[in-house]
Design a protein around this nucleic acid. Structure first.
Length: 240
DNA sequence: AGTCTAATAT
DNA sequence: GATATTAGAC
């Protein structure tokens, strides 16, 4: 009966899917390394006179990954640019914590390929939103504009408008939170409530062209970090 | 010309 | 309510 359409596929549930052949056998990106933690124990490092790890931040890694992924993509120009990531709809029992994320369960066997260029509505999963918030926090509200956020998030298929739309809502949420001195977030704030707004995003982080401390080059092999949007389906456009 | 943002539409 | 799309400003 009637025309129903909008099935929403979801985006970037597990933040790693892309050229699975290269990643086969490797642990998930998020599970790889906490990154905020030295790979070599302090004592051991001292014993061997290994210099402390440079202050690599998540964003640095993301950026590096972006470059890597970009290059890899070029090299093998045979990737269908749509992977439906799956979202548990209904039963939700996954939470992501900052720093100790354990996500697992990436089963994608979806292939909704149609000749339509109308993408499905993007679903901002907690994981995706988390990435968003991290990027915004590191940029500072002043510099956090759609294009930049989109680039740093490095999620394939994620568009500037997707980000812009979400950013608009996020700003309202932040403003609302600031207006109130101290009050728990409203239960209707789902995703937002689960992701504390970092103070960095409230004030402005300087657009420092240089990082506080120069990094050395470390030979880190971070596997592809690209998440994929499975966007499909049609929408409708009617008048004006 | 491209992007940002508020408003509005779906 | 969440996300997309538009309109106007920069």
């Amino acid at each position: 009966m009637g025309e129903e359409a909008p099935e929403e596929y979801e985006l970037g549930g597990g933040e790693d899917e892309r050229v699975m052949e290269w990643e086969a056998g490797l642990p998930g990106a998020d599970e790889l390394t906490p990154l905020s933690q030295p790979l070599v124990p302090a004592g051991l490092a001292a014993a061997f006179r290994i210099p402390p790890e440079p202050g690599r931040t998540l964003l640095d890694v993301h950026r590096a990954s972006a470059a890597t992924v970009s290059r890899l993509r070029r090299a093998s120009s045979s990737s269908s640019s749509s992977f439906p990531a799956f979202a548990s709809k209904g039963a939700g029992a996954d939470e992501a914590e900052s720093g100790g994320g354990a996500d697992g369960g990436n089963g994608n066997t979806n292939n909704t390929n149609s000749s339509s260029s109308k993408r499905a509505r993007l679903v901002w999963t907690p994981q995706l939103h988390k990435r968003f918030v991290e990027v915004v926090a590191h940029l500072g509200m002043k510099n956090a504009v759609p294009k930049t956020i989109m680039q740093l998030m490095n999620v394939e298929g994620l568009t500037r408008e997707n980000v812009a739309s979400h950013l608009q809502k996020y700003r309202l949420y932040v403003k609302r939170m600031q207006g109130l001195s101290n009050e728990g977030p409203s239960p209707s704030d789902h995703i937002f409530a689960s992701t504390p707004v970092p103070h960095a995003s409230l004030h402005d982080q300087v657009p420092s062209p240089y990082p506080p401390h120069p990094h050395h080059h470390s030979s880190y092999n971070n596997a592809a970090y690209a998440a994929t949007v499975s966007s499909y389906h049609h929408y409708h456009h009617a008048n004006h």
